[in-house]
């Protein structure tokens, strides 16, 4: 029949061609998939590269260094040391502390509003709402996430600020509370979506077991479902936190942008991202101010990287927990 074993075992040319083609396609797809990894690495490398002169350039070193960015400075002999962000001045001052304080103040307000609201709304949607309502609620709240942040910033600036000032009588119209509440509008959908996913991932058997033991629906929701989904809810909060630290346009428009180190929430504040956005347009390329703004970028990248990693670890725990019982 066919030839000798030696000869017959050789692949035909068409088969060989096909295999080469398949291997090439696979190689291209695998190569393209590396883009995601490359993007993250390149973002860090190229943002850090522009911040590097702070540590390497004597020119930039004259204006600032790590100590002057993080420790209180006595800018005039005999005066008490303090923190100051004042990049455009005879003696430029690049203290990160007012920006950190501003960011934390705004974020605190945002989280104070969005964690209870987001988690409660998720609980309601997954545990209490009738099916019909749930199917409307979820996409509606997801729609909130689709509003561009510049529109939320506009809303905070034009409408919310006025309403809040009339209600609480703030001295500065734009302040940490206005920015924080506006920020909550972008954080709520994040917390809601991730928590809701975690809650719905709890197997029905948990709920049935609890209900069968005579527990009511709310007891089941709070004592069985919520604890089971707790790491997922925590992940939601962490992601929301990361989102609110990094949000730019809303705070740029609604926070007043004064870099003050005070603890009053009624004062104007300036956050890390807003500082980059507001000042990058006026800096000298390669100068100290330019490098410091990129340094802020590195900080933001690292903060959110840590928060994301944390959130991913929590999510993994939920997945494992649910998989163990399914």
């Amino acid at each position: 029949m066919a030839g000798t074993g030696e000869e017959a075992a050789r692949p035909s040319p068409s088969m060989r061609r096909r295999q080469v083609r398949e291997a090439a396609i696979q190689a291209v797809i695998t190569l393209v998939a590396l883009t995601g990894i490359a993007a993250v690495v390149l973002i860090f490398v190229f943002v850090a590269r522009e911040a590097l002169p702070i540590f390497t350039s004597p020119e930039v070193g004259k204006e600032t260094d790590l100590a002057r960015m993080f420790l209180p400075q006595a800018w005039r002999a005999g005066r008490p040391a303090f923190f100051s962000w004042q990049p455009v001045s005879d003696v430029p001052k690049y203290s990160m502390v007012p920006l950190f304080v501003g960011t934390l103040k705004v974020t605190a307000v945002a989280m104070l509003v969005s964690v209870p609201v987001g988690v409660a709304a998720a609980l309601f949607t997954s545990e209490f709402a009738p099916r019909r309502l749930r199917e409307v609620l979820k996409p509606t709240i997801e729609l909130l996430a689709g509003i561009p942040s510049v529109v939320l910033g506009f809303f905070a600036l034009i409408v919310l600020a006025t309403v809040l000032q009339d209600t609480f009588g703030f001295t500065s119209r734009l302040n940490a509370v206005v920015a924080g509440i506006a920020l909550a509008l972008t954080v709520v959908p994040v917390i809601f979506t991730v928590s809701e996913d975690a809650l719905t991932a709890v197997p029905r058997s948990y709920r049935e077991a609890s209900l069968a033991l005579g527990a009511t629906r709310w007891e089941t929701a709070f004592k069985v479902v919520l604890p089971a989904a707790a790491p997922g809810v925590l992940a939601a909060v962490v992601l929301g936190f990361g989102r609110s630290i990094g949000e730019t346009m809303i705070v740029l428009m609604a926070s007043g942008n004064a870099a003050m180190t005070t603890f009053s929430f009624g004062d104007s504040v300036r956050t890390l991202p807003a500082t980059i956005a507001a000042e990058m347009g006026e800096v000298v390329f390669g100068g100290a101010h330019y490098a410091v703004l990129f340094f802020i970028g590195v900080e933001l990248f690292l903060f959110t990287f840590v928060l994301n990693t944390l959130a991913a670890a929590f999510v993994k725990r939920v997945v494992r927990r649910m998989a163990g019982t399914a």
Binding site: V40, F46, V47, G246, T304
Partner: peptide
Amino acid sequence: MAALVRVAVTNLAGVPSIVFGLFGLGF
């Protein structure tokens, strides 16, 4: 590699948008 790509994509989704601006400028 797939696990690494996933981690990268999750992190990419969390990078603040202003940092993308810096990246665009720097890169």
